[in-house]
Every structure is written in C-alpha cells, then in structure tokens.
Design a protein around this nucleic acid. Structure first.
Lengths: 252, 252
DNA sequence: TAGTGGTCTAGACCACATT
DNA sequence: ATGTGGTCTAGACCACTAC
C-alpha cells in the first residue's frame, strides 16, 4: 500500500470529508445523487470496500441515504413542530378536537393502526402508575403516518380497572379522546410530565418507522396526573428524530 | 459461497442479532467484553470483514463500544436529568445560584472552558433577536464536563449593544449569571421557548464531546423573552444524548 | 440489460493496549 | 510479546432499480 502515513487520515475518511464538503457547499443538493462506489474507486484509485466505507461514514451521519440499485442520495429534512404544552391545554381536548390536529399545519398526520389490549404491566409502568403485582393495564398502541411515512409510535398505558367498560378500551375513544373520557371518570388530567431521551433505534423501531441508517429516535415518556396528584396514564412515544422538532414554552 | 439464501438474513446480521440477544439476556453485562473479531471468525467460520460488520452493527446502535487494542465492550448509561422548567424559575437565578447546580444531584458537572467574543450574528440568530445587518452579537461559548467527560456545548448569543460594558462580556458573569445581569439591564427574562431536535453529531461536535459511535446528540435551542416580548438571548446547546434525560412538567 | 449498492472471502500491514 | 481493533486490497456473486 502507499502513503497511508502521509495524510495522517485514513483514505475513506478523506473521501468522506470531501463528499461532505461538496454537500455543504451545495454541490450536491437535497435529493441529488452522489458519486457511487464505482465512481469513487476510479476517482481515488481505491478498492471497493474503501469507497463503501467512505459512503458508510456519511450514512452513519444521517446526511445521505443509499437506495439499492439506484445510488446514494443527499437526504432532505422537513421536520414537523410538536408543541409540548399548548397541545395539552384543556381547551384542546375539552372541546372535542383530537390532540393531534394542532400539530401539523397543512400536512397530513394520520393514525395508521390502533391496537388495544389488556396486558400485565411492565415493571417500570407499574411503578409510575402505583399498581400492585396483580393489576393489569390497558395498552393503546398506535402508529402515526405523515404524508405516507410512519413517524411516531405511541403506547398509552392506563390502569385496567379504571378504564374497564369505557370507550378507552375501544379503538375509537370518541370526541376529545382518552383525556376527555378520563375527565368523565373523575380523573381529569391536570398536570403532565414529559421526559425526553434520544438514542439509535432498535431493529423493531427501525422497521416500524422505516428509519434510515444514521437517524436516531426521540423517546417521549409522558405521565398524566389527576387533581389528586395520581398518575392516571403513561404514554411512551418513539419519534423519528428526522421528522420532529419538539417545542416547549414556559414562564420564568 | 454457501447458504446465504437459506437463512434469509445476512451472516453478519445473524451474528449481530445473537450478540445483541446475549447482551439483553445479561450474558454480557455493562462494561464487559464481547467476543472479538477473531473469536467470531472462529466461532462462525466467517472472514474478518464479516465479523467486523457484525460488531459494527452493534456499535451503530450505540449499545457497544470498541476500544482499540483492547476489545469491544458493552456500554453503560447513567444519564443525568435536566429539568427544563423549574431550573429557569426566577427563584433559581434570582437568588444568586448558578442555573447549573439544580441539575445534577451528587455528580460533578462543571464548566470546562469559557470563551466570550463579539461576532457577526449568524442569519438565523439575527432573525430571532431582530437584529439589523450591521448589529453584532456577544457570544458566550462554554463546555460542561460531567465526571471528567464532556457532555454539553453551549453557545449563548446576546445583542452586543445591549450587553456592552457589562459582566456578561466577561467569562465570569457574577452571581445569578447572565439572567440576573439582564434583569439589572431592565430586560428580565420572563418567558422561554425551548426547541429540541436530535441527530447524529457532525465531526466537530463528535470531537468536542468525545462522542462514541452510535450516539446521537440532542440540540436545545432556547430563546429568552423579556416582558416586552422581546427576544434578548438565544442559547444553542448540544448535548451528548447518552448523558441526558430532559424533563418538562406543566399544567393542563 | 447495464449499473447500482449489499454481502462475503482471504489475505495483509498497522497502531495500539494489555500482559 | 501478544492480541486487539483499524485500514486496505482485489477479487467475487447477489438482488435490486432503472432504462
């Protein structure tokens, strides 16, 4: 081999850096095709694996997307804004609107699939909801699709004995959704806590959200409390991080 | 080659899946070493590149960390909790405490480096702060280190003409920090907006936070408004996502 | 059909960390 | 000194996409 010690940097990294610069300079715009493996082999006189490695760097950074049989393309981002606080104001769900219409502006965010089940409570959930070992939970799993692309998985956990025989155990919870039903049950949510983390998706999340390599997920864990200070719902959400900006506004 | 069509899955993926299962089953605990490239080659009868690819999958998922010359190890996570709202309550900075002491509990989060400069405003910042083309900004760049590991980069932008000749242009802003000084200038922050995104780090962020492969960053963009509704500060933060949980609590 | 990215082999040398 | 992961070559066959 020749001159690896010279550049101080691995070849694949130099190639990746050069391509990245081209993208940032607008030489390759969003949606456009980059030089492929064969192009890079010829242009830089390297083996296929080395060219692949360079492209893999950009994929891992999430700025580029490989399409089998077609090429490698610059990714485009159009995240939607999720208002963490206003969207849960009582006026929103008190008036019969879906909590999800406030989010998206002109774009089309819809529920793709709903699945309701009664299950044993995972330990972490049971702890938050203050359930006993025997208590079960009602789980509402939903997937949301934006313009045809799945962007959000949601699993809502509620104490089974609390919501039994109510529309909450049905796919369609009726006007105002789960929170309006909880209010009718005497457990109006008055306080919320949201916890946000981020990590790379596991293979399951990756498949369900068809997440491209190099894209993390954001995890929102929301707990709803009634006026007794009692946790009545835990909602675990998994978001495609490239599709979302979360916003929180508050007073000092 | 033999039998790739049989398993329906690539070899490296089968190997990765098996290792992942071992980790989830506790067979390899946090901090423990996984079978290395040579082990996997022998155990599965594959070439080095294939074994590498399997380990690369787990690295990209952020659940495993390679240490050159030593081996591949299961990562350990101990995120710290950042309270997005209580921490900015007036009582916190009004009484002369640092905004950063409320966060961390027993652990040791300290400022590693401070850099203050007057610069031209980036377009996006200028827009939020409603600056003209000629206006400049005071930029306060800081890096925070938790138990020896850098976890947070912060860049605070303020209109230069507003903070000129004040302690805000000094590395040490005095008791209560920037917000206490803004209050003395008649621009007490009364409202905040935080926007949260997540993506993979660029090479600069990766280096400054020494982020391991497969770990995203969270970006918090905070805007502070005074009682005139005027934006007086924009703070752009980059967090190591494996080190943080963000928390927001609010009323319905 | 031609070209693309995806997987895989069987070698090699290197810098590095631990023993 | 040994073993580890990191880089790289030069081949190969495959499935897929676009024409």
């Amino acid at each position: 081999m020749s001159g690896r010690g010279v550049g101080r940097q691995p070849k694949y990294m130099r190639i990746a850096t050069q391509l990245r610069a081209g993208i940032e300079a607008g030489e390759y715009g969003p949606g456009q095709r980059l030089p492929g493996e064969n192009d890079l082999m010829a242009a830089h006189g390297v083996a296929r694996m080395t060219a692949r490695q360079a492209l893999a760097v950009l994929q891992a950074e999430g700025i580029v997307e490989a399409r089998k049989g077609a090429g490698v393309f610059v990714r485009d981002f159009r995240p939607i804004r999720r208002h963490g606080i206003e969207r849960l104001a009582h006026a929103q769900w008190g008036s019969g609107r879906s909590v999800w219409t406030a989010d998206v502006g002109e774009r089309n965010l819809v529920v793709d699939s709903v699945e309701v089940a009664e299950e044993d409570a995972p330990a972490a959930i049971a702890g938050v909801l203050a359930l006993g070992d025997e208590d079960r939970v009602c789980v509402r799993r939903r997937r949301f699709v934006l313009d045809g692309k799945p962007v959000l998985l949601s699993a809502s956990y509620l104490p089974a004995y609390l919501v039994a025989e109510t529309p909450i155990t049905q796919p369609d919870t009726g006007p105002g959704g789960t929170y309006a039903r909880l209010e009718e049950l005497g457990h109006r949510p008055v306080r919320f806590r949201e916890e946000i983390r981020s990590r790379m998706p596991n293979s399951d999340e990756s498949a369900q959200l068809s997440i491209s390599p190099g894209t993390p997920v954001m995890l929102i864990g929301r707990t709803a409390f009634d006026d007794q200070g009692r946790a009545v719902e835990v909602n675990e959400m998994v978001l495609d991080a490239s599709a979302y900006v979360l916003e929180y506004g508050f007073e000092a």
